[in-house]
Every structure is written in C-alpha cells, then in structure tokens.
Amino acid sequence: MRTWRPTRTGSAGWHASRNSLRMKHATQLAAPAPYVLWLVGLDAEPTAAEVGLLAPAERARASKMRWDRDRIRFLAAHCALRLLLAEREGVPPQSLRYAAGAHGKPRLQGEGRCSFSLSYAAQQALIAIADGTEIGVDATRLIPLPDAGQLAERYCSPVERMDLDQLPEAERAAAFLRCWTRKEAVLKATGIGLGLPLQQIDAGIGEARRHLTVPTPPREQRVELASVPAGGQLVAAVARVVPG
C-alpha cells in the first residue's frame, strides 16, 4: 500500500492544490488510514482557471444544467475532486482521466490509482480518497421525516426496523438518515449501485463502526462501515472494501 505523497510541481508549473482558491473551501476531516475525507463548501463559483482543469465532458454536463445553483455546485465539487486527486497522485489536475466500472462507478484510468467517492449534501460535498481499497461515501442534510416509519418498512432490515421502533419519535428521523447514508456508502464502495436491495444491507442505525459481508455476485465483499462526524446538520457515512 502506498503512503500519502507530498505534492510536487509538474512540468507545467502546477503547484499544490491546497494553495488554490478552491482548496480554501475544503476542510479535511479526521479519518483512519487508508483513506482521507474532505468536506468542501460549494457556494463559491470556481474561477475560469479551475473550470479549465476539468475534462470537456464535465464542462459540457455543467453547461446543460438549467439552474445556475446546480451548475455552480457541480463545477465546485468536481474542481475540488480533481485538485485533491491530482495532489494525491502527484500529477497535473488536467491530466487525470476518468473511466467507469462494471456498474458505472467512476474511477481513475491507469493501474494502481487511488479510488474516490463524492456525495452532495445541499451546498457541501463530501469527498473520500483511498489507497489500496474501494471507497464509498454518502451525505445528506438532517431534515424532518414524519414518514420515517414508512421509509424504514421499505428500506431497512428487520433488525434496523426494530431498533428504530424502540427510539423516541423525535430521534427517528436522524436515526433513519444515519442508516440510509450507511447503506448508500456500502453500495458506492462495492460498486453495485442499486443491484442489491437496501433491506439486505444491515448497516445499523447508530454511528458505530462495523464490518459487513455484502453479497455482490460473483463473490462476496467484506466492507468496513462507519458514520462520519461531519458537524452541523450533516449526516454522513463512509465504507471501504476490505482487501483479501
């Protein structure tokens, strides 16, 4: 497993991404190796120079967005992701190329590259970057959920539903959203998307770290899962596939 490398200057004079305007809006969260987590603010529109680092497909996708708010949010998140990945890989940001996995999960082209995951929550993005393992994150804002019980019947495992029923009603929305983000993080880490019913992922309604065995044909995958203390009204989780 590679160690985290310091940023180096590229042939085009590219310098550390943390010194860029975009990285002034990024905060690194506490996380155990082998991954790092970043919380990025998406209110400020990226500069023309930052947008110029994106691939033509990314810029084209942004240009088709109807609302300025959505366009700015997309560009800000993808600029931050590209700068962080470039710093990790020690290459110019514009040199990075993305590819899609078997179920559409994005990855960096090339052998031995780090994996990554991106999730939006209102005007923030949560980004995870990992070495030697597949990673997945999910984040959402804490909102009232008067129908949390009905949602649990549809998406939660029997054990999770029982645990939710035992909570005071005022705590059920936060517990369901924790459970939801944990399940989504598992789906993103394993790369199976919606290929597995959420009821089959016993992610739990609490914040504790746990290990799961996820049936992802043709083989099972072992996943380590935890909630992310991102602060404020943000509910988030991270999952990584345990190698071997």
Score class of each variant (00 low, 15 high):
134 E>R: 12
135 I>G: 03
136 G>Y: 02
136 G>A: 06
137 V>S: 06
137 V>C: 09
137 V>L: 11
138 D>C: 14
139 A>T: 10
139 A>L: 10
139 A>K: 07
140 T>W: 04
140 T>P: 02
141 R>K: 04
141 R>V: 08
142 L>E: 08
142 L>S: 10
143 I>N: 08
144 P>F: 11
144 P>G: 06
144 P>Y: 11
145 L>G: 03
147 D>K: 14
150 Q>T: 05
150 Q>D: 07
150 Q>S: 11
151 L>I: 12
151 L>D: 00
151 L>T: 05
152 A>V: 04
152 A>E: 00
153 E>Y: 06
153 E>T: 06
155 Y>P: 02
155 Y>Q: 01
155 Y>C: 09
155 Y>T: 07
156 C>K: 10
156 C>H: 09
157 S>E: 06
157 S>N: 05
158 P>I: 05
158 P>M: 08
159 V>G: 05
160 E>A: 08
160 E>H: 07
160 E>V: 05
161 R>S: 08
162 M>L: 13
165 D>F: 13
166 Q>L: 15
167 L>Y: 07
167 L>C: 03
168 P>Q: 14
169 E>Y: 11
170 A>Y: 08
170 A>Q: 12
171 E>S: 14
172 R>H: 02
173 A>D: 06
173 A>R: 06
173 A>I: 03
174 A>T: 09
174 A>I: 07
174 A>N: 03
176 F>P: 04
176 F>G: 08
177 L>I: 09
177 L>C: 02
178 R>A: 01
178 R>L: 04
178 R>E: 00
179 C>V: 02
179 C>G: 03
180 W>A: 10
183 K>D: 00
183 K>W: 00
184 E>A: 15
186 V>W: 00
188 K>D: 00
190 T>K: 15
190 T>G: 13
192 I>T: 13
192 I>K: 15
194 L>G: 11
194 L>Y: 09
194 L>F: 14
195 G>V: 12
195 G>D: 08
196 L>I: 15
197 P>T: 10
198 L>E: 02
198 L>I: 06
199 Q>Y: 05
199 Q>E: 08
200 Q>W: 08
200 Q>H: 11
200 Q>N: 03
200 Q>V: 02
201 I>G: 00
201 I>C: 01
